[in-house]
Design a protein around this nucleic acid. Structure first.
Lengths: 192, 192
DNA sequence: AATCGATCCTAGCACCGCTAGACAATCGAG
DNA sequence: CTCGATTGTCTAGCGGTGCTAGGATCGATT
C-alpha cells in the first residue's frame, strides 16, 4: 500500500511543480513564453507528462488562476482586517487588490484575462473564485448603501478595480495617478 | 501618372479589404481564428501580400483597433447628443459604451485586450484613440464634481465601464443585471 | 526470476507567424 | 518594337506552437 501512496505523493508533488514553474515562467517572461516545451524542460520531464496531469495548457493556466484567487482573497482579507473604520477598510481593499494585480501580473492575467477554462458566476464555479468574491463582499457589503443589493454593489466596485488594474497594466492609464483614482473611487462609490 | 494613381488606389482598397476581412473573421470566429493563412485565403492573395501592407499580425489588429476607436467615439457622441440633461447624457454614454463592447467584441478586444502595437496615454498616441477618450471627456467633464480633475474622473469612469464590459464578456458577470449596474454607477460616480 | 502493467519518452502531426528567393508582369529607354 | 530593369506576387520553407500515437523501459507482483 505504501508504495502506491508514495507514488501518489510524488505525483501530487510533480503537479505542484508544474503549476509553480508555469507561474514562475509566466511572471518572468509572460504567458507567451510558457510553452509546453519550455515548461517540460524546466521541470525536467518530457512534454507528454504535462498531459498526464492536465488536459492541456488552458488547464495549467486555470490551476495558476485558482492559486491566485486564493492568494487574492487572503491578501484582501489581511488588508481589510488591519483597518478599523469602514472607509479605511474599503481603501485598504482597493489598494490590496490593485497591488496584487500589479505585483502578480501573470497570475492576474490567468485569473481574468486568459482562458483558463474556469466557470464563473455559476453553480459550478470553483470554490476559490467564489471565496475571492466573498472576500470583496465582506468589506464592500457594509458600505453598499440603502436600497442596493450588496452583491450588485460589489460587482460594480470590483469591475471598477478590474478596469483600473487592466488599463494600467496595459499602458492605457499612467500608474502615477493610481492613488487619487482610488480615493475618487472610494469617495464616490462607497457610502461611508 | 494616372497609372500610378490607379495602383495606389487599388493598393489602398486592398488594405481596407484586409482590415475589413480580419475584423469580420475575428467577429465571426474570434481572433484565434484570424491566422495569416486564413486571412490571405479570404482576400484571395497569398500570405506575403499581407506583409507588404502591415509589418505583421499585430499591426493588422492595430488597424482594426483604430477603426473601432473611431466608431466608438462616434457611437458615444451620437448617444450623448440625443439626451438633453447631464444625467441622461451620462447614462446614454455608459449604455452606448457597453453596447459597443457587447456588439463588437472582437473590435473591443483589439482595442483594449490584445496587443495591437499602439501607444496609449502618450505623446504619440494615434488620433482616433485620443479622440475616443475626448468623446468620453466631453460628457463626463460636466458631471465631474468640484475639486476633481475631469481627466482623472473620466479615467475612473472609463475604467469602471471597461471593467463591466470585459468581466461581462468573459462570463464573470451575468449580463442580466447590466442595467442596474449602470444606474448604480452613474448615480454614485456622476455629480449631477 | 519472470511477467506484466504502469510510466515515460521519442517522434511526429497539423498548424502558427513570418520570409527568402524564384518567377511573371509591367514599365521606361533606346 | 525590343529589351533590360523594376515592381509585384507566389511557392516553398524555417523555426516555432499545442498535442498525441506508439514503442521502450522500469518496477512491483507473482
Amino acid at each position: 500500500m505504501s508504495v502506491q501512496e508514495r507514488k501518489q505523493r510524488e505525483r501530487a508533488e510533480r503537479e505542484r511543480l508544474i503549476v509553480a514553474t508555469a507561474r514562475e515562467l509566466a511572471e518572468q517572461q509572460g504567458w507567451d513564453a510558457v510553452t509546453t516545451r519550455r515548461l517540460a524542460e524546466r521541470i525536467e520531464y518530457s512534454q507528454p507528462v504535462l498531459y498526464s496531469h492536465f488536459r492541456g495548457k488552458r488547464e495549467i493556466i486555470g490551476a495558476v488562476a485558482l492559486q491566485g484567487a486564493a492568494e487574492l482573497a487572503t491578501a484582501v482579507r489581511a488588508a481589510t482586517s488591519a483597518a478599523d473604520r469602514p472607509r479605511a477598510r474599503v481603501v485598504a481593499l482597493a489598494r490590496a487588490y490593485l497591488d496584487f494585480a500589479a505585483r502578480n501580473p501573470a497570475v492576474y492575467d490567468a485569473l481574468f484575462q486568459l482562458d483558463g477554462g474556469l466557470a464563473y458566476a455559476q453553480e459550478d464555479t470553483p470554490e476559490p473564485l467564489k471565496d475571492a468574491f466573498a472576500a470583496l463582499l465582506e468589506t464592500l457589503g457594509e458600505v453598499t448603501g440603502d436600497g442596493v443589493q450588496p452583491g450588485l454593489f460589489t460587482e460594480v466596485f470590483w469591475a471598477a478595480l478590474h478596469g483600473l488594474a487592466t488599463l494600467t497594466r496595459a499602458g492605457r492609464l499612467l500608474p502615477e495617478d493610481a492613488e487619487p483614482r482610488v480615493e475618487l473611487l472610494v469617495d464616490r462609490l462607497a457610502m461611508v
